[in-house]
Amino acid sequence: MSGYSLLIEGVSKTYRGSTRPAVDNLDLEVRPGEIFGFLGPNGAGKTTTIKMIVGLLRPDRGRITLDGCDITKDPIRAKGQIGYVPDNPDLYDRLTGIEYLNLIADVFGVPQAERKRRVHDLMDMFELGGAITDIIQSYSHGMKQKLALMGALLHDPRLFILDEPMVGLDPRASHLFKELMRKHCDRGNTVFFSTHILEVAERLCDRVGIINRGRLIACGTIEELRSLHRTDESLEDIFLELTGATTKPETNGPGLTTDREGR
């Protein structure tokens, strides 16, 4: 056991036909009980990284372990630890909401009494009760997003992985969801999510990682990033500076790195 909920070691991925790696020699560790924000501009490699973490893409090089399970070598056990919500919640349109949740609960082996309690709790929280027996095709984008979140939380995953989770949520659901993420982590679980909403990352995350052109260019707490840049600037300013400027790389001790160009 590595002691990390999520450990990414030297992971690279280049799509066929492309000369530039989408993810380039990425090292990252996320500890139990942590909310980790994964930030980066469009095309930086966030979604590629997340897809490799959940087993939708295979890395060309490197290793990803989830609670000690290698996602490539032992994918079934590793996937069993994960609750995953993609950036675009395309679900089975012809199922009803409850049928989808039951499918997920069956696949993850959630016992009957437990799933009943959790479904009711989550329906209450996301206010999806009135629509749960309707087919998903009739849901709005936000409702699909809520259902995808419910499905991902149903088995109380050790590692909750979300690609842009706030998109489509109304302010109330968004607020409740942030509380839920905190509570989830307080129970020793881990949340890893990508976002463009830097305020959310700033307020919610224990640590953030900034990726640009496939490389991790900064990683640490918000305070660590500020002290590194010797500034009181907001995360947005730091983010813009890191992803927009071209200056020489810097290294600042274990677990805290910056590399403005991703080199």
Partner: peptide
Amino acid sequence: ADATRKKLLAGQFPALRFHQR
């Protein structure tokens, strides 16, 4: 598709079936 939605208040959820398979 939209018109079929039942408007339920919180706590008035339909009786849901949970069969474990």
